[in-house]
Design a binder for these strands. Structure first.
Lengths: 105, 105
DNA sequence: TTTATATATTATAAATTTATAAATTATTAT
DNA sequence: ATAATAATTTATAAATTTATAATATATAAA
């Protein structure tokens, strides 16, 4: 069921490219902190700020990157903007990272 | 068993930092291609070159990065240098990536 | 309508990474 | 020794990312 057709170099490079696009987004300490928080559920910017100690403009900037790459969803409610993880792939990778480096290491 | 103590911000940042160091290394298309090949077992530089179409000096440069960060082992045999994955964490992450983007997607 | 709170945007300098070319080292075969 | 093959190292320009500061927008409360 997890059988693997022999793939040519270009097919592999294509997969590597996709995986790499995602990894580039995760490979930043601030973004990783934010996503780590969001694995626990939806949070607004103020909550993320408190939980990460990332200064507000930087945080907002990193959230913008995550939004543009469709890694997170935004939901506006009054003055508050609530974020949550949109990408199943990211959830899976965060789970693996959590088991390797996180609280249940 | 996977219970989680409440962690302070600095402890979480520390974990994020460790995970991030690893992700930065994976977040490059060439290095990812190379590691993808090495998940299938030890290979020498020429074999890696043929399997990835990465030009030789670039490939050697990326292998140097992987070596310095203890992601791969090198074993010299005559004119040939054989590489293999040294990091269990990397193996685990590659496995997750493989299931998301790879042949058994 | 003024003020305060929450958040986002813009701009720019500094740092890091990537791409590319040239030169060098190591081992084996002739 | 000389040549050939396998691989690494060095150098540098180009591109991307990160850090930092200043400014702007949106909503709600007074």
């Amino acid at each position: 069921m997890t059988d693997c057709k022999i793939q040519n170099v270009e097919a592999i490079r294509d997969s590597a490219g996709q995986a790499c696009s995602m990894l580039k987004i995760l490979a930043n300490e601030d973004r990783l902190m934010l996503l780590c928080q969001l694995t626990q559920g939806e949070k607004n910017v103020g909550e993320l700020e408190a939980a990460t100690n990332i200064q507000q403009p930087t945080l907002s900037q990193q959230l913008t990157i995550l939004r543009k790459d469709n890694i997170v969803n935004i939901r506006k409610d009054g003055k508050f903007n609530y974020y949550s993880i949109a990408s199943d792939e990211v959830i899976q990778v965060m789970q693996t990272l959590g088991s390797l480096y996180g609280c249940n290491k």
